[in-house]
Design a protein around this nucleic acid. Structure first.
Length: 692
RNA sequence: GGUGGGGUAGCUCAGUUGGUGAGAGCGGCGGAUUCAUAACCCGCAGGUCGGGGGUUCAACUCCCCCCUCCACCA
């Protein structure tokens, strides 16, 4: 048994929203790894905190008529409640808006200053005069400045149509998505860290093969660092803009009044601040954890924030003289039934909603069984979820205890472990292999291996059939031996799964009156302890429960989360209007030029070569039809459209498209792609009627 | 558009440095059993390994092109 000292972090959840099942992939993954290390006897601590700073928090606070502090306090409580419910145990849960964090930010900042990495540059940024805020790129929309594109309604950093990147100040006719106001261009001085000075260090650290998954190292090399040994050579690392001018919710930079550290500067330092709080509470020495070669630091993050954790963060730590991460473990995203989580489809499921319907251990097990060492996305196929939980957990693992304990309840396990044909020893021999899977975050392989052990145990009891022997009183001792073996095999499985299913390990401990506290408990059979009465440890689940959870998630709107809405019952935001500002006034004469008609979709066909188009045949009644190509492919299936009524522009000049002649348009709202919403009309309308 | 990572049985995924007839779990089908939360046990599944071209005695595994999905682009 090793005596490693390990500090683990999971990414800091942002204090702007509730924990959902996508977040939980990471926290469950990390918690499993931490519990595994603790079970192995390694000194392991697990820290996290709420990420609280930045413009989004200010906007939320303003919308809700509260202070930022009130918003983040409430959200921190909600986050911690959800984590606890899912069995995720932190040694300390802090906040980036803490005195410890402010102090550490100052210390690291000073070191970066002293190293000569900071420089000052003027930059132009858009300011919303109505909201009184500088606008982050995603809060600005306008027309793409590329003269060959000029796509309307594009965000402030790059065009979704032509892909061009630009600064928000270059946008044509920009609008704030907060207020709809036209932003002003303001020049402000920002502070930058010259990351290029750390280029050779970052090459070495990131490409060493020790700290990052190979895909991640490749990505950093291809995208940011370049390869000094290649023909193209190293790439220039751009300066990192780490300050924001007031007003900004964050920490003011001590030697630069009126400027605040950008949220991504102080967020990772929150790992240290959380450690500091724990040290102050427990009497531990901070430097033993962040400035010691005897401590391994492991970060767990999602692939979206790779760049901050693998370039800036090591750079900051190196410059300020702290320990570098031993490893940054990066995971993919969660998909549900093969698609992105979707609020409209009810697959954007909050942790608290899940808990209304299902036990947390099911999700812990399911994620564990899907998580490998790579950073591909994992899929929560809801039908598979039900099957896997029922089959693996209830039908296979728990079933071992269920079918054997009753024969010996009230008695004790054999004083000497009986001959089991080498089953227990063979499983014990796999302990190191399983441990290695856990160590490498290959939980899918670990659970697969463990499940095979349970399979063998089930085969064993099948072959020995104690329920037959039990009918002959003279064979009572043989029955007891068989059940002692099966219960030991069950316990062994429970030990191996303890990091994933801590509750099951506890239940196994209670059943056999011997708590599971160490990985090595799987290596020695238990003898002579009393066997309690068997109680069901897990219930089977049904698709109906899952469906109910999805249904509840459909209704749940993000505006409701965590707060009581006592103003408008709808709480419609300004984003949609700001995204497409009102056009100029028109007259009734202008309007009647457009002939809108009710039409029935009588045929709908996919256009295989088109990304967005469906080919619709619309009936206006009496044999009058229109052939229309509609850009709704990602939002509607052809078979769902046939028969329904829509509203169309019936007198639009026909247009020759690549795939055929389009003789009109169907009316719909929404930004496009999957978010397209066809106009419906109340019952009673008939095709051919004009819309006035 | 650029960078990186994927596209393998109905579903979710494994497939080491190219080589006996391509695997697992779940579902499905057949059988056996009845101790167990209709659980467990035995047997069956024949998928152009995204498409095309190339290298090779031999490619899912190497090279090129294309299609497609995902993330990132400070």
């Amino acid at each position: 048994m090793s005596d490693r000292r390990i500090l683990v972090t999971a990414a800091l959840p942002y204090a702007n929203g509730q924990i959902h099942i996508g977040h939980l992939v990471e926290y469950i993954q990390t918690d499993i790894w931490v519990r595994f290390q603790k079970l192995r006897g390694n000194r392991t601590v697990f820290f996290c905190a709420d990420d609280t700073h930045g413009t989004a928090i200010s906007i939320r606070a303003r919308d809700e008529g509260r202070t930022e502090e009130e918003v983040i306090a409430e959200m921190s409580d909600a986050h911690q409640r959800d984590f606890a419910a899912f069995g995720i145990e932190f040694d300390n849960y802090g906040s980036t808006n803490s005195p410890e964090n402010r102090e550490l930010c100052g210390e690291i900042w000073q070191a970066i200053r002293d190293a000569g990495l900071v420089k000052e540059k003027d930059i132009e940024q858009l300011f919303d005069p109505e909201a009184g805020l500088f606008l982050a790129d995603r809060f600005v929309r306008g027309t793409c400045p590329n003269s060959e594109c000029n796509a309307p309604n594009q965000p402030g950093d790059n065009c979704s149509k032509c892909g061009r990147t630009y600064s928000p100040a270059e946008l044509i006719d920009p609008k704030s998505t907060l207020s709809g106001a036209t932003p002003e261009v303001r020049t402000a001085s920002h502070l930058f860290i010259e990351l290029s000075q750390l280029h050779s260090f970052l090459d070495e650290w990131s490409q060493s093969g020790k700290h990052l998954q190979p895909e991640v190292a490749n990505n950093l090399r291809g995208q940011f660092l370049g390869d000094p040994n290649s023909e193209e050579g190293a790439k220039e690392l751009r300066d990192w803009d780490i300050s924001r001018p007031a007003p900004y919710f964050g920490f003011e930079i001590p030697d630069s009044p009126g400027n605040f550290w950008y949220v991504w500067f102080d967020a990772p330092i929150g790992y240290m601040a959380s450690t500091k709080q724990w040290c102050d509470r427990t009497g531990e020495k901070f430097d033993d954890w962040w400035k010691s070669d005897d401590t391994e630091i492991h970060h767990f993050i999602g692939k979206d924030i790779t760049y901050f954790h693998t370039l800036f963060w090591p750079g900051m730590l190196k410059t300020a003289g702290f320990s570098l991460p031993e490893k940054v473990h990066i995971h993919g995203f969660l998909r549900v039934d093969g698609e992105k989580m979707s609020k409209s489809q009810g697959t954007f499921i909050m942790g608290s909603t899940y808990l209304n319907h299902l036990e947390p251990d099911y999700l812990r097990y399911f994620y564990a069984s899907k998580l490998g060492p790579g950073l591909g996305d994992i899929d929560l196929n809801l039908e598979e979820f039900v099957n896997r939980v029922n089959s693996h957990l209830v039908g296979n693992i728990v079933n071992l205890a269920s079918r054997s304990a009753k024969f010996v309840s009230g008695g004790t396990l054999c004083e000497e472990y009986p001959d089991d044909g080498g089953l227990f020893a063979a499983a014990a021999a796999k302990a190191d292999q399983i441990a290695e899977f856990y160590e490498q975050c290959d939980f899918a392989s670990a659970t697969l291996e463990i499940l095979q052990l349970a399979d063998e145990a089930n085969r064993f009891i099948n072959d020995r059939a104690p329920w037959k022997l039990n009918k002959d009183p003279e064979k009572a001792e043989e029955v007891r031996q068989i059940c002692s073996i099966v219960l030991n095999l069950f316990r062994q499985v429970a030990v191996f799964l303890q990091p994933v299913l801590p509750k099951l390990a506890e239940q196994a401990g209670e059943l056999l009156n011997a708590p599971i506290s160490n990985w090595d408990d799987a290596k020695t059979p238990l003898t002579g302890t009393p066997v309690s009465e068997f109680k069901h440890m897990m219930q089977r689940i049904t698709k109906a429960q899952v469906d109910a959870m999805v249904d509840e998630s459909v209704v749940e709107e993000p505006a409701d989360e965590g707060s009581v809405d006592n103003e408008s019952p709808w709480n419609d935001g300004p984003e949609a209007l700001a995204a497409e500002p009102m056009t100029e006034e028109c007259t009734i004469d202008d309007f009647v030029k457009v002939d809108l008609r009710v039409a029935r979709v009588i045929e709908a066909k996919d256009v295989p070569k088109a990304n967005k188009l469906l080919n619709l045949t619309l009936s206006l009644g009496g044999g009058e039809t229109r052939n229309v190509f509609a850009g709704i492919k990602e939002a509607y299936k052809p078979e769902d459209l046939v028969g329904r009524l829509v509203v169309c522009v019936a007198n639009l000049k026909p247009r020759q498209m690549k795939f055929g002649l389009s003789e009109g348009m169907v009316c719909a709202s929404g930004p496009g792609k999957a978010d397209v919403f066809l106009l419906d009309i109340d019952d009673g309308a008939v095709p051919g009627q004009r819309v006035h």
